[in-house]
Design a protein around this nucleic acid. Structure first.
Lengths: 253, 253
DNA sequence: CGGCCGTTTGAGTCACCTCAACCACGGTGG
DNA sequence: CCACCGTGGTTGAGGTGACTCAAACGGCCG
């Protein structure tokens, strides 16, 4: 494992973080008020209200946020990659179950300093807002998947999403173009993210392999042979709801 | 129909809007830079990039945001009620199809003035941020529904949600406790919101009626007879993922 | 009256779920 | 070194909830 610097300016996730917008002085101050901690895979973070308005940045690894019904049905609602922010400022409650999917290094920010930046630094504030809005878009994209896509499309979409996320995030990945995807989730977690059962996920992966799009190296690693084929399996494009009410009339449903 | 004042301080949606936090002076200024416009049910708003960073407040009626695949499959990702904000500041793109579900009155805000408030007024900024974060929560709640709930649970949940939303929003509703719910959606729209087919929605409503929880007055209006029964049909509580790994061991799945 | 639209109802099908067996791998201890 | 076990993954057989297709209904409007 790399040497994980405690210095913000040397942060492994620096380019992807919110903190990027800060000047050296601000950064030093935030650095002083932050601390880092490792969580091992599967470890959950605190009780329900353990956040108490504090935020943390994912430096390495993948976190998962999930919601559950009391009968055990569970839905993963977000994955957080290096550079992503965890928590909700101003708000004691953080209504999700937070768990490390892989081993994770978090950088916890001092609440007072973080809130201060939000108020005093417009660019920081705006970057934060941008993130929040992006999270909305991501959640809504996934709503489309959960509500309307088939099992095969869901699995293919997940693989593509992971491929994209891990390619420019500074995980434990080779920066090379080898197209080996290391899935940070178990089959059960994939299922909980996709609104499927783990058996179904397994079967769809088999189908994708049979179609020649991928090759399963081991349970966690997948060699992407034909990315286009994956894209195709992921279903039709999202339509920007073209102006063409002409096409809509015939093609609609 | 009421007389819809053009004066912000007399706005029908005032108590639910962002603008609530503004002082009279700011309000007057924003008022000056805003204009109101009616959209009839079913009407779509502009082309894809018609927003161009501008925002609008829903004053009356219900808007829907949806995403679609190019083969016609569609998912409604959000409903906007009076007081809710529409659009995305700083960003030309607004990646949703925006349509009026009912007749809707929008109050369009001047971009410059709106952005200025966002920067200069911390309370306004914070209120906006709060909204965005609430939208994330709402989308993720719905992800749980789409990924894990049964058809009956979905329909019941929708009815409860609508009941709650319309009860304290200043729609065309009686403020009384009569428990008559006027659904602002067609069956097809309900289906597109719930990730179901319209026939399925219809059948589940029939089941709910057979169980005595509701009575269908006409296609749009529903008399809620036993709200508890609806709540029960909506499925088990969301668990705050209790500390009890003890219960989890047995009850989990 | 006739046509249209949104809705309801029915009958049959299928994609995904359920249940269960089996397998591969890694760690543990005799 | 190997028997044992636990965990996570795969595979199979059968079931079912929601979908598909189709027909009929009822209110509305010309």
């Amino acid at each position: 494992m790399k040497a994980w610097s405690k210095i913000c300016s040397e942060c492994a996730a620096r380019n992807a973080t919110l903190c990027r917008v800060l000047d050296p002085q601000e950064l030093a101050r935030l650095n002083h008020a932050s601390f880092r901690r490792w969580y091992s895979a599967g470890q959950a973070i605190g009780g329900i209200a353990a956040f108490d308005g504090r935020c943390a940045t994912v430096v390495a690894g993948v976190m998962k946020l999930s919601k559950a019904l009391s009968d055990g049905r569970q839905q993963i609602v977000a994955l957080l990659f290096p550079g992503d922010l965890l928590g909700r400022p101003y708000c004691a409650e953080f209504p999700y179950t937070v768990e490390a999917a892989t081993d994770v290094l978090l950088c916890w920010h001092g609440r007072a300093d973080f809130d201060r930046l939000l108020v005093l630094r417009p660019d920081f504030n705006r970057a934060f807002l941008q993130r929040a809005l992006d999270s909305i878009d991501a959640a809504r994209d996934w709503m489309l998947l959960l509500g309307r896509k088939t099992a095969l499309e869901r699995v293919a979409t997940l693989l593509l999403t992971l491929l994209q996320k891990t390619s420019y995030c500074c995980g434990d990945h080779q920066p090379s173009q080898d197209k080996i995807l290391t899935i940070p989730l178990t089959r059960l977690e994939m299922a909980d993210f996709l609104g499927l059962r783990l058996e179904t996920v397994s079967r769809q992966l088999k189908l994708l392999e049979a179609s020649g799009a991928i090759k399963r190296l081991d349970t966690r690693r997948i060699l992407v042979l034909v990315a286009d084929s994956l894209t195709h399996a992921a279903g039709p494009d999202e339509s920007g709801e073209s102006i063409a009410s002409a096409t809509a009339a015939s093609a609609h449903r």
